[in-house]
Amino acid sequence: MRIVLSGGGTGGHIYPAVAVARQLEAEAEGSAFLYIGGKRGLESKLVPQENLPFKSIDITGFRRKLSMDNVKTVLRFLKGVRASKAMLKEFKPDVVIGTGGYVCGPVVYAASRLGIPTLIHEQNAIPGLTNRFLSRYADTVAVSFEGTESAFPGSKRVIYTGNPRATTVMTASPQRGYASLGIPDGSTVVLVVGGSGGARAINQAMIEMAAAVGRDNKAHYVYVTGEAYYEDTRKALVAKLGHLPSWLHILPYIHNMPEVLACTSLIVNRAGASFLAEITALGIPSVLIPSPNVTNNHQEANARQLEAEGAAVVVLEKDLSGQSLHAAVQRIITDEALRAGMSEASRRLGKRDSAAIVVDELRRLAAAGKG
């Protein structure tokens, strides 16, 4: 099969597309890929690192108030459609998949105008603007959260697939995770992370809760600060504690996140959809602190889905402090029955075969397109 992938802006849009490519590679030797992303997006850096052929178009998103920038965005969209059509005619894909972000708009729209079968994947419980627009043109809409199919009432076909990123973590080695952190195998690990770039509010709560953790600690705490916050957070922790104890591990970034997740007993994190797919695939209980700075407050909607099933505790950022975070973590980490129940609930929500389901749908679309 020949597949064009598109998705950009954040890792949450990029990694599901990469997971689909990896699944198709495993299933069908000789598959060919082209990833069309934005010139300014994170995909321009991450996708080449994944050894996937990459081409770019220039695209920006709409502002939510009247602005001359929106006129420029429309012009960039039209130019992006023309550029995408040229790339698609040259590559001749069997099907095009978009996984979110503004760049998908011109790519998937161009494919639909050329009669190429298309699939879009929505990671969040509340659809993004681009996918809402594209749902009128795509042949299939795939959703990550069961029960959110109704968010696309005018679509030709909507299916529940889960998030393909869930499949990626299933082969990760917990032993390698422990080894990479310098933590003995079998230890209880509490992973605190504020997303790939870190989160100032979570870092501040981590600093505030550190002394209390030391008094009742029976676990290894791994604090991932984000590169921009690392030095200041580390200095603040040393100032508060006098030194960095052996149970406290401060890191700016984790490059082998699937392996670290595989050895994690409890995670404190934002509520990005791809991350939630990973932790539910592995059955990890969570304390979720949704970012309030996202479109349509979709992270809280994501988090509430897990909370409703008993897989997570939600702490809103306005209620976040060292004390509230410590209380939430300690209640879970010291109650084995509670943690086991949350783990089972998390695992029930996991869609570990998601990438395979998406690939099956791509095959169906490709076959229908050739018919």
Rank of each mutant, 00 (worst) to 15 (best):
S291Q: 08
G341N: 07
K55Y: 00
L349G: 01
A179P: 04
A328V: 09
A239W: 00
V4C: 14
K318E: 13
D353H: 03
D353C: 02
G101M: 14
A281E: 09
R364K: 15
G194C: 05
L338N: 02
G100I: 15
N51T: 04
Y178A: 05
V96L: 10
D353Q: 05
L114V: 09
P16F: 02
A210K: 04
G322Y: 01
E50C: 05
N256L: 07
V222T: 02
R40A: 14
F54N: 06
V18N: 04
F33T: 09
N302K: 03
A308M: 00
R304H: 11
A345N: 12
A311L: 13
G283M: 03
E146M: 03
D58T: 11
V192N: 04
P252I: 03
D58Q: 07
K218P: 00
I202D: 11
L34N: 09
V313C: 07
H243N: 13
T188M: 03
V103K: 05
A201V: 14
N296G: 04
K92M: 08
V359C: 13
A367Q: 12
Y178E: 08
A308H: 02
P245F: 15
V213A: 08
S354R: 04
F133N: 11
L325I: 06
A356P: 02
H220Y: 14
G197T: 10
L191N: 00
V260F: 03
A368Q: 13
I36C: 15
P258M: 12
R331I: 01
P252E: 05
I183Q: 05
A367D: 12
K79Q: 12
A21I: 04
N131L: 14
A228P: 01
S187K: 09
I59K: 11
V20D: 10
V192C: 06
G198L: 11
Q305S: 09
I279N: 09
L288Q: 05
L78K: 08
G214L: 08
T295R: 12
A239R: 07
A312G: 08
G182P: 09
S196K: 05
M257N: 02
A236F: 10
G98A: 13
S135N: 07
K39L: 10
F54C: 09
L134D: 06
Y253W: 06
L181M: 11
I126T: 14
E146P: 01
V213D: 06
T99R: 02
T334V: 15
N293Y: 15
L134Q: 07
I57K: 11
D58V: 06
R347Q: 10
G12P: 01
F145Y: 15
V47W: 09
Y15W: 02
I289L: 14
L191R: 01
P106W: 04
H121T: 02
P93V: 10
G371P: 00
I284V: 08
Y230R: 02
S135Y: 10
R348C: 11
R200M: 04
T148D: 09
I267P: 00
R157V: 07
A271K: 08
G242H: 10
I59V: 15
A26L: 05
I183T: 08
T233P: 11
V18H: 03
I116S: 14
A86R: 11
T118P: 07
A111F: 14
A301Y: 12
A211F: 08
I357H: 06
T60D: 14
E278C: 06
Q23W: 00
E300Q: 07
E43Y: 14
L316A: 07
K55F: 00
A301N: 14
G98R: 12
S67T: 08
A311F: 11
T73I: 03
G147D: 12
S84L: 12
L306N: 07
